[in-house]
Simulated assay, not measured.
Amino acid sequence: MILKCIAIDDEPLALNLIRNYAAKIPALHLIQTFNDALSGAEFLRHNPVDVLFLDINMPDISGLDLIRSLNEKPQVIFTTAYKDFAYEGFELDALDYLLKPITFERFGKAFQKALDYYSAKQIQAESHPESLVVSSEYQRIKIALSDIEFIESSEKYIKIHLVKAKPVLTLISLNKVLEKLPEDKFKRIHRRFIVNVFKVKFISNQKVQLTSGVKLPIGKTYLHFIEEWLHY
């Protein structure tokens, strides 16, 4: 398993250090580095990565605000000289929090956390490849993936729309349920919607029409789905 990553930091020396450390780890592929948060955020909106090494205290927007602005969030490893932001970092489900100056040993431990996370996710997907288990109305329900047409976010809940049954409502975020689904079958197309790509009948005017006739919008940050869908 090779994890794709980028690094965002306004300090050139910090970026050079991350480049050097990443080059020593064969299973870590550093795609690109950015010295400002806005450019890095724009890249992330169109290029999904596994891991983001992110400074917190930057002049344009903070790393914390950058993460809050993203619909699709990679696993985040904060890199900062300030201890004060640790609590906020973990509130945003950061994978790790590295204090500068960062040693290679500490960098390696953070990478191992990321590798463990994605390894566990892969094992989970392989052990239950054809179903999704959720809690609904005080019950544990197993849903066949082939029965899911699309998933809709509704405040703190999501609504799982099924082909031949009434929707299932469960208390979980859209990001969390997406982690449980196979990436080759389910794609996020909007901040509120995930679709089963095999239930998409056609795409027109930045909208998908599903086999049931339901039409859903494609968000501006998810327009890459149109090109991806053509390859299915």
Rank of each mutant, 00 (worst) to 15 (best):
F186A: 07
D184T: 14
T170P: 02
A81S: 11
L132T: 01
L52P: 07
P217Y: 01
T80F: 07
Q122C: 09
T221I: 05
L64K: 01
D36V: 08
D93C: 11
I31S: 12
L169G: 06
A81M: 10
T80R: 04
D147F: 02
D65E: 11
M58I: 05
C5Q: 06
H29V: 11
Q32A: 13
F193M: 05
A165S: 12
K176A: 15
S69C: 06
I203Q: 04
V200M: 09
I2F: 14
F85N: 08
Y21D: 02
I2R: 12
I25S: 01
Q32I: 06
A22K: 04
F150I: 13
I2L: 14
S119W: 07
H29D: 07
V208P: 00
Y157K: 12
Y87D: 00
I18L: 15
I77H: 03
S39V: 05
L210R: 07
N57W: 11
L98E: 02
L92A: 09
K207T: 15
E179R: 09
L181Y: 00
V163F: 13
L28A: 06
T221Q: 12
F225S: 03
V133K: 12
V133W: 07
T170I: 07
L171S: 12
K201F: 13
H231A: 15
L28I: 13
E228G: 05
I6P: 01
G219M: 04
L38S: 11
Q209E: 13
I158P: 00
K207Q: 15
I143Y: 02
N196R: 03
S119N: 12
A165W: 00
E137K: 14
F53K: 01
D10M: 09
Y117H: 14
P48Q: 06
L169Y: 12
D36G: 04
A144C: 11
D116A: 12
E11T: 10
D116P: 03
P48L: 03
A110K: 02
L178T: 07
L64T: 04
E126R: 14
S204P: 00
F53V: 03
